[in-house]
Amino acid sequence: MVGEHDWYFDMGAKWREFFGQPTYSFDHKGVHFVVLMSVVEKDFWTPKGLNPMERMKTVAGLDNSNQSAFEVGAAQRDWLAKDLEKVDKKTPLVVFSHSPLYKLYRPWNFWTDDAEQVQALLQPFQTVTVIHGHTHQVLTNRIGNIYFHGLLSTAWPWPYAPEGLPKLTVEMSRANPFDPHDGLGDGRVDVLADGLVNKIYMLWDRNPVTVRASYLQAMGKVDRPPAPTFKTY
């Protein structure tokens, strides 16, 4: 799955050479998996006369406000509509994207500009899970039948956005600056028999945090994950 750091130096040439097409789908054990390239940006670099490295650094920064919003774009939305045509609506869907496929905080591109149009394509299915990166934190959301889980980073943590945090998100404690591994980790997604998922955040220097399907299903009324000790300022 493509993230913006993989793409904007050579516009994905090396990525394609290694991995092929950035958008694809497959079926595994009764689940339909879809991978989207959600960090498409409109050309802001040509008018500004940026070279590839400047373009890359601009997209990699969060708070510079010199770039476009991330989007999936019309071409991939058309592809997605065709891909899903042949899938039974009862089949569990798991979608991977880099940016969250909803609108959280535009100044940092915690955002997908055509999120509503993508969500509309996913809405007819009974159980849909979106697993996304970019925000580098425990991040939980539910919009209708679509359940969203953010991934941790293995390199550096981001703070939570100052506004727009989904109500179902229970923040992880902010990273301890004196511990270079704190706030980082890997994770696991367990797809359950009913097609929903438990998301396990395996924080390297902390206890793991599980965000259960039941927590999202009950809109936060049961199985609430542990509250943070030190929240983002």
């Binding site: 920064g61 969060l62 708070d63 940092w108 550096w156 981001w158 703070p159 100052p162 983002t232 300022y233």
Partner: peptide
Amino acid sequence: CDMCHPNAANTH
């Protein structure tokens, strides 16, 4: 600095 602290977030 901005790479961990966009808009100086979490510098409190």
